[in-house]
């Protein structure tokens, strides 16, 4: 179980994500899996990227949606476990630093339990061509 004062961060260069219009897509280049998240989940992902601690994330959800503190904490904790299990984030090792506090926000729509939807249809296709080594941009 991840401690509530911990922070998460995206897992390196193999993971990329985008949030558009309240939905998120997260891709893991290392294993070919990709994921989507609904509105509440994408809000949590943005908080992950901002370096917020889990307990602050729960507070932020409570401020933004009509949800109890208990439910928000449980949902954030469960989603954090899933993100770690899927290799999309890692737990930051900077213990004691809780990151930014939640800022006041306008109330959003009705709360729905955040879900991480997993797609594995690409994983089998990785074998079609040799994977390229980690190549950066062409030097100027």
């Amino acid at each position: 179980m991840i401690e509530s004062n911990c922070r998460l961060r995206p897992n390196g260069a193999d993971v990329a994500a985008k949030v558009i219009d309240g939905e998120a897509i997260i891709m893991n280049l290392a294993n070919g899996l990709y994921f989507s998240m609904d509105e509440v989940g994408s809000a949590v992902w943005e908080m992950v990227e901002s370096g917020m601690a889990l307990d602050h994330m729960a507070e932020a959800l409570q401020a933004r949606y009509e949800v109890s503190a208990e439910t928000a904490r449980a949902d954030v904790g469960r989603l954090a476990e899933q993100l770690v299990e899927e290799g999309l984030v890692i737990v930051s090792d900077d213990a004691g630093q809780t990151g930014p506090s939640p800022e006041p926000v306008e109330s959003a729509g009705p709360y729905a339990t955040p879900t991480l939807t997993r797609y594995d249809d690409m994983a089998d296709l990785l074998a079609l061509d040799p994977p390229m080594p980690g190549l950066g941009a062409l030097p100027e």
Binding site: A13, D14, I20, D21, S36, L125, M132, L135, A137
Partner: peptide, 26 residues
């Protein structure tokens, strides 16, 4: 279709199958 739906259809096979390691996020 929403932009995120389009991204979900187009990005995985475009980026995972192609030699973009190292500049994946870009």
């Amino acid at each position: 279709a929403s932009t995120i739906e389009a991204l979900l259809r187009l990005a995985p096979s475009s980026l995972i199958l192609l030699p973009y390691a190292g500049t994946f996020a870009t």
